[in-house]
Design a protein around this nucleic acid. Structure first.
Length: 201
DNA sequence: GAGTAGATCCTCT
DNA sequence: GAGGATCTACTCA
């Protein structure tokens, strides 16, 4: 298993990076406790021209400052006052491309994830949906700006590759306010995977 | 099984 | 002061 290098994140095509993140493994090691999961669903946010992005029109605030920090950084943000959403920043400094991790398939640390989410048994709701992913992996807004090349938080490649025919795309979820951009097929997921949010098909 | 409303709090205007 | 890159539970059929 190999940690993804910064070159992976520095590329300019956020859609391609988003597709390639499918099947990769996200790992956290807080306080020596390891939890990890395979990424099965992502959404791309295409910088300042994307109405659904926090950085639309070049908006820059304290909250989204990390989106401009450059490739290979985590942007974590609180939504609806409850849910922590985990994003990967790509491209380069001052270009706020982001990829939202919407769902992972648990690999390591089931017990810890159950404890964090307050669930009693392992089922496919554990890491389904961005809010649950962050909860299960112990991701918190205080970790925004964290480097994805660090020891505690990184994304790894175990050579597992999904075939093109196993990857599907669709419009993004929960961005109806974004007008025409809400219809862009920037969401990518593994067909038939039980951890993918939305209706199974 | 499907559809709907409520939770809940930080951030920007 | 309003609204948001969501989830869950509860209703009704």
């Amino acid at each position: 298993m190999k940690k993804l290098a910064n070159e992976f994140y520095q590329r300019t095509n956020v859609l391609q990076i988003a597709r390639e993140l499918l099947g990769k493994i996200i790992v956290t090691k807080w306080n020596g406790i390891t939890t990890s999961g395979r990424i099965v669903e992502v959404e791309a946010y295409n910088g300042i021209v994307d109405k659904a992005s926090h950085a639309f029109g070049g908006r820059r605030t304290n909250r989204n400052e990390m989106m401009y920090a450059g490739a290979g950084v985590a942007y974590i943000y609180l939504c609806y006052g409850i849910h922590h959403l985990f994003n990967v920043i790509t491209n380069s400094t001052d270009i706020p491309h982001a990829i939202l991790i919407r769902a992972v398939e648990p690999i390591l640390g089931f017990e810890e994830m159950l404890k964090r989410t307050g669930k009693k048994k392992l089922d496919n709701t554990l890491t389904r949906g961005p809010g649950n992913v962050s909860k299960a992996l112990g991701i918190h807004t205080s970790q925004t700006g964290y480097s994805l090349l660090s020891k505690e938080l990184f994304i790894a490649d175990d050579k597992c590759k999904y075939k093109k025919s196993e990857i599907a795309s669709s419009p993004r979820i929960g961005v109806d306010y974004a007008g025409d951009d809400a219809l862009l097929p920037y969401r990518f997921y593994i067909k038939g995977n039980p951890f993918v949010s939305g209706k199974p098909k």
